[in-house]
Simulated assay, not measured.
Amino acid sequence: MNASEHSKLVVIVAFPNLPLLEIAGPGDVFFQASKMVYEKTGVESAYKVIVVAADRSDQVVTRSGIVISTPIKRDDIQQPIDTLIIAGYNFENPVIETSDFYQWVSETYSKVRRIGSICVGTFALARAGLLNNKNVTTHWEKASRLNREYPDVHVDSSQLFIKDGNIYTSGGVSSATDISLALVEEDYGREIAVSVARHLVLYLKRPGYQSQFGDLLPEPENTTFSKIQEWMIANLDKDLSVEQLALHSNMSPRNFARVFLKETSLTPAKFVEKLRVEMARKLLEESDLNMEQIATKTGLVSLVSMRRVFLRNLMITPSDYKRMFRTSRSEVEFA
């Protein structure tokens, strides 16, 4: 059999000003997977990757200024597309907005085996009408906007990537490699995917149940609740019951709880818990306090309690979080 009978064509559609990793990450994963498949089975060119510009230009200038050549236009592709991946998104791009791009995405979806998006590329799939009643993810900073603009889409911004049918969506920029490894595993099995991850020094499955680490709390728009949040932060180790919060806000407990839920979409108790976790992880990242001190200072009381609420909110333990996000001063060399 010749290579063309085995080659899976992966087309990455790149928006202008996207992070380079959204192209380079999948490109390296699929290249390495092809190499591993050949070594194991003798099949050549398991994947063929083409990058095309969303605006049909001859090049894509990435956010870092590195230019990617895109001589092939999406309409010039003759080989059937196996996997279409949308990388990046411009919320205001008159060239793309006035073109037939989203119609092309919708029509192409009906012909491909699967389609995916990286980071805010989820918006392009939504704009093309592919995500109604689908479970998806996107970068945590844009999740509320995706919810607001496409209310029929079910958004879970805690996940690095989500598969719903033959649609894959992913979170932050680095999740480009996570979703690509998942596609390789789907095509050629765990052994090949593990070999690719090991060679590229990546996690096949990241710790923390593949969770994004975004802000847990919404920004309160009500100035009254902005002030009460400031007071909460200064008094995390104190009693922050509904009764105390209502008293400090000159409201009845029942009315405070009702209005607070309406303004923040969280109950006061859940808001306090998430606020304590936010402050605890900030201290884990930046301070020299030990775990017990952080638990006490943030009102999480004990290591057992802090571990429980971290797992509930971040799906990772405090000790694992600290190892992932804090660099010890002793490990840093100063010139």
Rank of each mutant, 00 (worst) to 15 (best):
S180I: 07
A14L: 11
L283Q: 12
L183W: 04
D55M: 08
L146H: 04
N235S: 07
D187S: 06
F334L: 12
P71W: 02
D288M: 07
A335E: 11
E230G: 14
P94Y: 06
I96W: 03
L160M: 14
D100M: 11
D237R: 10
L181N: 10
S157C: 01
V272F: 04
A295K: 07
V29P: 02
P80K: 11
M291N: 09
A3F: 13
Y109H: 05
S302T: 15
I294M: 02
N17F: 13
L9H: 10
V67T: 15
N135V: 02
D100V: 10
K322F: 01
M306K: 07
I294C: 02
M36Q: 15
P318H: 08
G171I: 13
I12R: 01
T41D: 07
S265C: 03
R258Q: 12
I228V: 15
V153E: 05
D237M: 06
S144A: 10
D75Q: 14
I66L: 12
F91A: 12
S241F: 07
R258D: 10
V67L: 02
G171K: 01
D82T: 13
T296Q: 13
T296H: 05
I23T: 08
L160P: 01
I77Q: 10
K73Q: 15
D76L: 14
R206P: 03
L160A: 04
I316C: 07
A143S: 11
V61W: 01
L216Q: 06
Q229I: 13
G25W: 04
I72M: 11
V301G: 00
G42V: 06
E219S: 14
T83K: 01
T83H: 09
Q32I: 07
L266Y: 12
D288W: 08
L303E: 14
S195T: 12
I162P: 01
I233H: 03
N313Y: 00
A280F: 11
R281T: 09
L217G: 09
L247P: 02
M306Q: 13
L283N: 06
G214W: 05
G27L: 07
A24D: 12
I118D: 08
E273R: 13
R63L: 15
A182Q: 04
Q78V: 15
Y168E: 01
P26W: 01
F256D: 13
N90R: 14
P253R: 03
E292T: 15
D178A: 10
D156T: 10
S57W: 04
M315F: 15
N133W: 03
R114H: 00
S252F: 05
K282G: 05
D178Y: 07
S144E: 15
L84N: 01
K282R: 09
S305E: 12
Y321S: 13
D82M: 01
I228Y: 04
N255Q: 08
M251W: 06
E5V: 08
L283Y: 07
F325S: 13
K40A: 13
A24N: 06
V301C: 05
Q212Y: 06
N93R: 04
E263K: 09
L300P: 11
V51E: 08
